[in-house]
């Protein structure tokens, strides 16, 4: 019996019934760290949203584990939130908890305790009463990660979480993800342009490029080869494995 957590079976991804690329096959298991890479407009975010169930597949089926449902923690591309809403950082992070709170039921004390725990874990507890709209880009990324974790998800999905932060911010966020993975067995899928991030943190890679009809999956050593880097990214690189 294949103990998959997420499986794409002959899935064609796309919008409004129009396929972009497919049929795709992918099997993601518990506690794996997947990096999703590819050129701009290559279909990375569409793939991610299809996995999340936000966009229905044009063809094929997306299956979720044995139970048929998973709790997702989702970090969307930052900067998409309306700054008019005067939400505090704590209120923002608490929204990640709503996956466990039904419609018509308010946030209870134990939910706030979980929120506080993840505010602490992400190092932004001191910002909890600050308006979310007023914090810096790096702090916002931490709040997004805290929000995704506060639902205590089976799978954490991050869409370019380091795109709007500097090198230091990127190191902090990736370090935070590594800490979380060490303290709690969690499956992670991350979309990023930064190959060095994938090379360092991911154990599996999806490479997707709808224009070339390319979809490669597997362990990172198998996917991030010299030829892929040369053909797709124009990099004259030699991959050396770290001992």
């Amino acid at each position: 019996m294949d103990d998959f957590l997420i499986r794409l079976e002959k899935v064609t991804i796309g919008y409004n019934g129009k396929g972009l690329i497919g049929p795709l096959e992918l099997s993601i298991k518990r506690n794996q760290f997947w990096g999703i890479v590819g050129p701009n407009g290559g279909g990375k975010t569409t793939l991610l949203k299809t996995i999340l169930g936000l966009i229905p597949p044009v063809r094929g089926e997306v299956r979720y584990g044995e139970s048929g449902s998973l709790v997702f923690g989702y970090v969307p591309q930052s900067g998409n939130f309306d700054r008019l809403f005067p939400l505090s950082v704590a209120e923002f992070v608490a929204m990640g908890r709503y996956c466990r709170i039904p419609v018509g039921v308010g946030i209870e004390r134990r939910d706030w305790e979980v929120v506080i725990r993840y505010l602490k874990k992400t190092g932004i507890l001191h910002l909890r009463n600050r308006p979310f709209r007023s914090i810096s880009g790096g702090e916002r990324q931490r709040a997004l990660v805290a929000r995704a974790l506060s639902g205590e998800p089976d799978v954490l999905i991050l869409d370019e979480p380091t795109a709007s932060v500097d090198v230091r911010g990127e190191a902090e966020i990736m370090g935070l993800l590594e800490e979380i993975r060490e303290s709690r067995a969690i499956t992670v899928l991350i979309v990023t342009h930064f190959l060095h991030t994938i090379a360092r943190f991911a154990d599996h890679v999806v490479f997707i490029d709808k224009d070339r009809g390319a979809f490669l999956t597997g362990k990172k050593e198998e996917v991030l080869t010299d030829s892929v880097l040369g053909d797709v990214f124009g990099l004259d690189a030699i991959i050396k494995s770290r001992v």
């Binding site: 999340l52 169930g53 936000l54 997702f72 989702y74 969307p76 939130f81 309306d82 809403f85 939400l87 929204m95 990640g96 709503y98 996956c99 709170i101 419609v103 018509g104 039921v105 308010g106 946030i107 639902g151």
Partner: peptide
């Protein structure tokens, strides 16, 4: 429905995911 109205107004995408 206060929590829910705020949620779907602020982040409908996450609300759909949940």
């Amino acid at each position: 429905l206060f929590k829910d109205f705020i949620f779907v107004s602020f982040d409908p995408e996450l609300a759909r995911l949940f």
